[in-house]
C-alpha cells in the first residue's frame, strides 16, 4: 500500500532522512517509531505531500507520490498539533473541507453529521474552535482527516496532549478504522500506545530504517519471553549473567535494580533450562515471567536513544 525506497531529505545543512525505507501493508496499522529527530515527522510530511523529498521513490497504492492530486484523494492526515481556523466552528471548518474534496452539499451535510457524532463533538460543533480544548481540536483534526473517507490515514503523534479518557476513545476509533479496512501509519513516542494499536513497526534512527517487521516477529527475534530472577547474594549476579549468556536458548541477559533479566524465545522449553542453570549457580529468591515489550524491542534496535 505504501512503499518508500531510499528516501532522503535535507533541510539546509541537516540531513533529516538518509535513505529511509518503509513498507506498509494494506489494512494494517503500522507504527513509525524512533528517537527524537530520527525523521518520523519528516516521513509523514513527505507521505502527505507537504514536504518534497530530495530523492527516493514513494508509491501509495502503486501511484507515484509525484502525482500529488491522485495520492491526496487517498490519504487523511492528523498532525501532531492540529492548527485550525480558530474563528470558524468545527462544522464550518468541515464544510469548507468538504468543498475542497468536491463533495455535494447533501453528501457533505450527512457525512459531517456522522463524523461529528463519531468524534463526539456534536454539542460543540457550532462553537468557535478558539474555545476548544486540545483534545477537541484533535478530534476535529481526525474528523477532517476522515471526511473524504480516505483509504490511508497518516497519524503523527495522535495521542500527544490527550488525557487518558480521550486517549482511550482515540484508540477505539483507530481500531474501528482498522476494522473498516483502513491502512494506518502511526508515528508516536508512546511505545505502549503503538504496541496496543499496531501490527507492525518501522524503527528509524538518524533518518534510516533500522528494522521493519511485525511486532511478533521482532519479539521473537528479541526474545519473546523475559524471566526476571532475584538472587539472595548480589555478588553472584555478574557470574550468573555470564553463565546464562552462554546458553543457546538465551537471547539476552541484563541486570536491573537487583534483578537479572533473561530473554528467551520459547517458554515451554527454555524457561526450565534457565531456572535449572541459575539454581545451580546461586540461590534464587524469586522468579517471574514477563512478556517482551515494544520498549525492549525498541531499546535493542535503537540502542537506547529513545527520546
Amino acid at each position: 500500500m505504501i512503499n518508500a525506497k531510499n528516501l532522503t531529505k535535507r533541510f539546509g545543512k541537516v540531513d533529516a532522512l538518509k535513505g529511509l525505507n518503509l513498507h506498509v501493508k494494506k489494512g494494517s496499522i503500522q507504527g513509525l517509531i524512533g528517537p527524537n529527530g530520527a525523521g518520523k515527522s519528516t516521513t509523514i510530511k513527505i507521505l502527505s505531500t507537504l514536504v518534497i523529498a530530495n530523492s527516493g521513490d514513494v508509491t501509495i497504492n502503486d501511484i507515484p507520490l509525484k502525482r500529488g492530486v491522485s495520492v491526496r484523494s487517498m490519504i487523511g492526515v492528523v498532525p501532531e498539533t492540529p492548527r485550525l481556523h480558530e474563528n470558524k466552528s468545527a462544522r464550518s471548518e468541515l464544510r469548507f473541507h468538504a468543498k475542497l474534496y468536491g463533495m455535494s452539499q447533501k453528501e457533505a451535510k450527512s457525512r459531517i453529521s456522522d463524523l461529528l457524532y463519531a468524534v463526539q463533538l456534536e454539542d460543540a460543533a457550532d462553537r468557535p474552535i478558539r474555545g476548544y480544548s486540545t483534545g477537541m481540536k484533535k478530534r476535529v483534526a481526525l474528523a477532517l482527516a476522515l471526511l473524504h473517507e480516505p483509504e490511508i490515514l497518516l497519524l503523527d503523534e495522535p495521542m500527544s496532549g490527550l488525557d487518558p479518557v480521550i486517549r482511550k476513545q482515540f484508540k477505539e476509533i483507530i481500531l474501528d478504522l482498522k476494522e473498516m479496512g483502513k491502512t494506518i501509519l502511526v508515528s508516536d513516542h508512546d511505545l505502549y500506545t503503538v504496541e496496543e494499536l499496531c501490527d507492525s513497526v518501522t524503527i528509524i534512527q538518524d533518518g534510516k530504517t533500522v528494522v521493519e517487521d511485525t511486532i511478533e516477529s521482532l519479539r521473537h527475534e528479541t526474545g519473546s519471553i523475559a524471566i526476571e530472577l532475584r538472587v539472595s547474594d548480589d555478588s553472584t549476579m555478574d557470574g550468573l549473567e555470564s553463565k546464562l549468556t552462554s546458553l543457546d536458548c538465551v537471547t539476552d541477559v541484563s541486570q536491573k535494580r537487583g534483578w537479572v533479566i533473561v530473554k528467551v524465545r520459547d517458554s515451554k522449553t527454555d524457561i526450565p533450562v534457565v531456572i535449572h542453570t541459575a539454581s545451580n549457580h546461586t540461590d534464587i529468591l524469586e522468579a517471574k515471567q514477563t512478556k517482551i515489550t515494544l520498549e525492549d524491542i525498541f531499546l535493542k534496535f535503537a540502542g537506547g536513544h529513545h527520546g
Binding site: S48, T49, L50, V69, S70, R72, S73, I75, V77, P79, T81, R83, L84, H85, H97, L100, Y101, G102, L144
Partner: peptide
C-alpha cells in the same frame, strides 16, 4: 500553520 489543510486536499 493552517496552510497544510489546503495542501493535503486534492486541490
Amino acid at each position: 500553520k493552517t496552510l497544510y489543510h489546503l495542501l493535503v486536499s486534492p486541490q
